[in-house]
Design a protein around this nucleic acid. Structure first.
Lengths: 355, 355
DNA sequence: TTGTAGGCGTTATCAT
DNA sequence: ATGATAACGCCTACAA
């Protein structure tokens, strides 16, 4: 752990080369340099060549800061996520970075740590950095949205992804969580399940409200009763999933399936079911949400809803780009809705060996 | 997928408030404003109050770009990773962002996509963004390191993490991969294994070279023969792990254990072993590397070496901060080495039910 | 304790 | 086709 230091001395840093240096060297004006480098039409091909060659030779690096200051618009894109862990947010960020860099934008990443105050600070930081836009997935504890207002007042494009505001007067890219919940529940019903429990997340967040509603609607459409006793609200960790499963199995009339709004909790449930010597899916079928990597390595493998993480990142950037392209961009509000995909796996397939 | 647009018109953006605005409003000079806001000692408490109150009221946001341009030093920190997926890199980035933001730095993140050319572009981008430093984990295909030289020539602190250059004339934070390999192999030997195979990564990268060497040294120290037939080189995907396992099990004299330099491949191996009806660890013991989340949910759970991802991120930032603090910072080369931790789980524990 | 003025590197306007 | 010049917002000698 203790750093080991070397004593060799390196040569002193070379000062960066600026346009003024190139201009002096070639005996032309800075205007010419600037235009030659940005491939302006009013510069002779000969001059253009000369300038660009010298730039390479002297290792000229444009100073984006200066350009941004002058133009009033940077090529920085701010991203705020609750945290960078698990499968979802890293994948979305992956998608965002790829799409953004393709469009010439650099991505500044901030974590709100699921904390509203931190999120407010992130906004300030990004505004100070003069970002060209902000992409955000709101913290779980955020219920005052005034800091986002400030962004819009400044005319800076703001796009929400996945976790958004109640209000739909915003730009957002979300999954059709309702449909995910509906499909998954319907699938369980189609497999013959009649008493389906639900692990629900905090109803504060749009995503968990919608997944629950999809579940309820699927039950309703199938003429099945909606039983609040079968809905367990929690943060949906593995432990909470196991606990919830234990409680449900202890009921006089236990469920024959669980649709969980998260994968961790359904994993906990799976382990609990196995601990009790019951079989999945024969005794109880399971379906989760997020299509985490581990869903295809458990035994049995877990049915889950894929959230299209990477597409979400790309779609979010695309929407941002549309906003800055269209003149009045910041004044419109668009909602992009991605379609979930249900991955049916062993944990919910009664198949031939029926029930 | 089709964006739905709202037509409500929002008020036009307000122009950002600058120091000049505050100065005009209060009838004082910009110097006073600047100093009051940065809490300079030579400003009267009364004035300071007034200025700061007005700043809040008018919603003044400092322009970091302008400050950076003026001072020649930004509060931006560049990070280059091969990709943002799996467990390792997101966790490291998580650690980096937390530590950096605590020190007042914003993180610009770039992906090299394991491609050297892309990595070079990333460097250019970051230099143009005038970052205060660059933290990098090199792409798998990088074998020409001249683009990093350019960074150092500019006097910009450069810190490698995890994947570094051969040469140790750099600043770096790495795991003691040798020790991870050694401990893991020794553990298998202690469990009674005598013919231990190794899934090795590309020897191009320091980390895989070192893990392999640890493996070899542990065998040597235990007086066991080193058999190249038992070492399989690959990219260590799940499929490659399964393939390798199949080949090893088909040997006239198959191994009784595998130490893999990665978790995915050992997972593939586990599945293959089970497919063949053999038992883990009784017939063959398994140990991996990275302590991926799934290692504790497989059956049996997988022994693995933890890489201290988050600490690595924090240590990398800490080293960067030391470099900019010490005047001649960019001229020294320090190596920080983190100690791995072996998580022993069922896949390698012969325990009571011996062999 | 406060004010004046110049400049960081770039781009845009206006002239040549 | 090219040049001179001002300005973006901030910081910091240097003056007062």
């Amino acid at each position: 752990m203790a750093p080991r230091a070397k004593q060799e001395q390196l040569p002193p840093p070379t000062t960066p080369v600026s346009m003024a240096d190139l201009a002096r060297e070639l005996g032309v004006s800075m205007t010419t340099i600037s235009r030659a480098l940005s491939d302006h039409h009013s510069i002779g091909p000969a001059t253009k060549q000369k300038v660009q060659k010298l730039a390479k030779k002297l290792n000229y690096q444009p100073n984006h800061l200066a350009a941004a200051l002058r133009k009033g618009k940077s090529k920085l894109l701010g991203v705020i996520v609750p945290y960078i862990e698990g499968r979802f947010f890293p994948s979305v960020v992956h998608g965002i970075e790829s799409a953004a860099s393709k469009a010439g934008f650099s991505v500044i990443i901030c974590q709100s740590n699921e904390d509203a105050a931190h999120e407010r600070k992130n906004i300030e930081t990004l505004l100070s950095a003069q970002v060209a836009g902000i992409l955000v997935s709101v913290a779980r504890t955020t219920n005052d949205f005034r800091h986002f207002e400030k962004v819009r007042k400044r005319g800076i494009p703001l796009v929400f992804f996945d976790r958004t505001m109640d209000n739909d007067a915003v730009n957002s890219v979300v999954l059709n969580d309702w449909k995910g919940g509906y499909q998954s529940t319907k699938h369980l019903i189609d497999q013959g399940c009649r008493r389906i429990a639900h692990f629900a997340g905090l109803q504060h967040l749009n995503i968990y409200r919608n997944r629950r509603q999809g579940y309820l609607d699927a039950l309703h459409d199938a003429g099945l009763p909606q039983d609040e006793e079968l809905i367990v609200y929690s943060d949906m960790t593995m432990e909470e999933g196991a606990d919830a499963m234990r409680r449900l199995l202890a009921l006089p009339n236990p469920p024959d399936a669980v649709f969980s709004a998260g994968d961790s909790s359904v994993l906990g449930a799976l382990q609990e079911v196995k601990r009790q010597g019951l079989r999945v899916p024969q005794d109880i079928a399971l379906a989760g949400f997020s299509n985490e990597a581990f869903t295809s390595i458990t035994e049995p493998m877990l049915t889950s809803v894929d959230q299209r993480c990477e597409e979400m990142g790309q779609a979010t950037v695309r929407l941002f780009l549309e906003l800055i392209d269209s003149a009045g961009g910041a004044y419109t509000q668009r909602q992009v809705v991605l379609q979930p995909e249900l991955f049916v796996r062993e944990s919910s397939l009664h198949g031939a060996n029926s029930k």
